[in-house]
Design a protein around this nucleic acid. Structure first.
Length: 125
DNA sequence: GCAATGACGCTCT
DNA sequence: CAGAGCGCCATTG
């Protein structure tokens, strides 16, 4: 692997069960890279074809496919998702309320106690 | 090393 | 609900 971030992204994407989808931002967060959704896209783009990573289950936060049409990957992704049972709207978007993968609530967290960087951060609603 | 790019996300209009 | 604008930051030329 070229970088550790790719490995984490790869690991998270592999967790997505069949028939479910997740978003880049979600993947980034689960991978320990909050706010780096674009890097998730880059990572998947750089994935070798031989890898058995279900990259097709990763869509944007709106439940739509972001790929361009050049390589036809968009059509391929949609096709594969439909094969898995995913249903697209009339606008070509997935209802994340139904197919969005949500990790377990009590899932283990990657928060490390030795790093106060994330600690002093609170919302001031 | 700087500038442009991009499989994104959130907010405002 | 949809489109436009801005922020984000690793990768690439």
């Amino acid at each position: 692997m070229v970088s550790d971030a790719y490995a984490r992204i790869d690991a998270v994407v592999r967790r997505i069960p069949r028939g479910r989808v997740s978003s880049y931002g979600e993947i980034a967060r689960l991978a320990g890279l909050p706010g780096r959704a674009r890097q998730v896209g880059y990572a998947l783009h750089a994935l070798p074809e031989a890898e058995e990573v279900p990259w097709q289950r990763v869509v944007n936060a709106q439940g739509g496919i972001s790929l361009g049409g050049d390589t036809g990957l968009g059509s391929l992704q949609r096709n594969m998702l439909e094969t898995e049972g995913i249903v697209f709207n009339d606008r070509g978007r997935i209802d994340l309320k139904r197919f969005g993968w949500r990790p377990r609530h009590g899932s283990r967290r990657r928060v490390k106690p030795g790093r106060p960087s994330e600690q002093g951060r609170m919302r001031v609603d």
